[in-house]
Amino acid sequence: MAFWREPLDTQEIQISKGTVHIIQDRCKGCGYCIEFCPKDILAFSDSFNKKGYHPPLAARPDDCVNCHYCEIICPEFAIYSTEDPDIAATETT
């Protein structure tokens, strides 16, 4: 990355920011969201859900860009992301 020039419009581009929501008891622990999160923000939690699986937790929640990838690849409807309201507010200004 060091060889790459920083794009000129970096300052103007708004990277959206999101919050990950995990519906723990729906999870069956396949790990797809953890493995394929493009920002690598998820990890298995140590705790068990009521079905006995380790659901994911947001290890680096601040890095979420609200891309919704986890939301669709999750076969269990157990995870989704929403746009962070603070960022959305700044975007409109």
Binding site: K28, C30, Y32, E71, I72, I73, C74, P75, E76, F77
Partner: peptide
């Protein structure tokens, strides 16, 4: 690990 849920989503 079954992918049907993903296709369904």
């Amino acid at each position: 690990g079954c992918g049907i849920g993903t296709v369904f989503s």
